[in-house]
Every structure is written in C-alpha cells, then in structure tokens.
C-alpha cells in the first residue's frame, strides 16, 4: 500500500471514521509482520521482541512522513499495541502449526505471569481478548497497551487521560476476568461468546 494512502487513512481515522483503523491496520501490518518475522528468525525472541523494533518501524513509517502528528498519540499507540498483539499471536499460531521445539516465550507483563506462555494458552488469551473487545473495547485497549506495548499503568493513564488509580482498578478487574476465562473449565475457549 502506498504511503499516500496510509496518510489518507490516518486523516479519516482522525476525522472520526473508526473503520479507517482496520484498513490502516491492514495497510501497515504486512510490512511490520515481515520485520517481525525476520527478527524471529535471526534473534532470540525473548531478547529482541520487545516492542522496540516494531514501534520504531512504525514511527519511521508514520512520523518520518509527517503523516502522524503527535496529537494523535492515543491513536498511534492503540494501533501499535494492536499490531504487537497481532504479531505475537500470529507467531504463536505459526509455531504451533510447525510444532517446533522451544516454542515462543512472549514477554508478557508480570501481571499476567500466571498465564502459561505456551502457544496454546496464548491463543486462548487472544480469544478471550476478542471477547473482551466486543463487550468492553476500552478495557481491551488498556490490556493491549499495558501487556503488549509495555506501557506502565501511569503511562497508560496519561495516554487515555484518566487517573492511574482508575487504570489500576480496570486492570485488576480484567486480570480477574481473564483468569476466570482461562481457568474455568466450563468457559473453555470457543464455547461461549459474550452477549450470547
């Protein structure tokens, strides 16, 4: 996708067309996925797949072309967090298919340390997040920023113009909810959907 088109989508997104985000995502994702793929193959995931490389690429792509203004930080970081999540989950899916040794160790935040970071469990997590996004998109964004982009609670609060206390409270609830979703045998994945 041409850079001009990315700029156009950013404008649309800023102008309040949520659908533009999805298209924007599709526009920048393949390139970032490619970079992530290269990183996976060359370097040890744990060491390198900090969000650094990908966020850096995104900055280069968007900021250097002046298509992103820093007033759009919230949008930008939400997008970045989602991309990070997608990159990690795609990778988990791929390794599970290939059944390679070692597996993927996703640098999950220590708040989620009880989640077994095996591929299968990660995909469960992803599906739980899909459900969360449907019922409460704001919470899903908080999780993505916090767990996939490495934002601290206060950084998340600042970005979303809210207090650290309320982010802490939201996160605690989400942590409980995710625990429930991933540990309750009756709520095993794909069996239920929020709102059903």
């Amino acid at each position: 996708m041409a850079d001009a088109e990315i700029t156009e989508l950013l404008h649309e997104w800023r102008a309040g067309k949520p659908a533009a985000l999805d298209r924007l995502f599709e526009a920048v994702y393949p390139r970032l996925r490619e970079i992530a793929g290269a990183l996976f193959h060359n370097e040890r995931l744990e060491h390198v797949l900090q969000p650094t490389s990908l966020v850096n690429e995104l900055f280069l792509k968007l900021v250097r072309q002046h298509s992103l203004r820093f007033e759009d930080r919230e949008h930008f970081y939400s997008l970045s967090a989602r991309i990070m999540r997608r990159v990690l989950m795609d990778h988990a899916r791929e390794t599970r298919r290939q059944k390679r040794d070692g597996g993927v160790r996703v640098p999950l935040d220590e708040n989620l340390a009880w989640i077994d970071s095996s591929d299968a469990h990660l995909l469960d997590l992803d599906e739980a997040l899909v459900r969360l996004d449907q019922v409460d998109p704001t919470k899903c964004r908080i999780v993505e920023l916090r767990f996939f982009l490495g934002f601290t609670a206060s950084e998340t609060a600042e970005l979303l113009s809210t207090s650290k206390a309320s982010i802490d409270r939201e996160l605690k609830f989400v942590r409980g909810w995710l625990y429930d979703q991933l540990h309750d045998p009756e709520l095993s994945r794909a069996s239920q959907r929020p709102g059903e």
């Binding site: 744990e46 160790r105 009880w114 609830f173 942590r175 409980g176 625990y179 429930d180 540990h183 309750d184």
Partner: peptide, 19 residues
C-alpha cells in the same frame, strides 16, 4: 462463584520469574 474466582485470580501473586 464467578466473582469470587475473579477476585482470587486477580490477587494471585505471580509465581517465580516469567522466564
């Protein structure tokens, strides 16, 4: 039961290093 599970899960301290 669900709320209790959630509260316990949310307050569970991480065991050992994640790596």
């Amino acid at each position: 039961a669900r709320v209790l599970r959630m509260v316990r899960g949310a307050n569970q301290t991480p065991e050992g290093p994640s790596c």
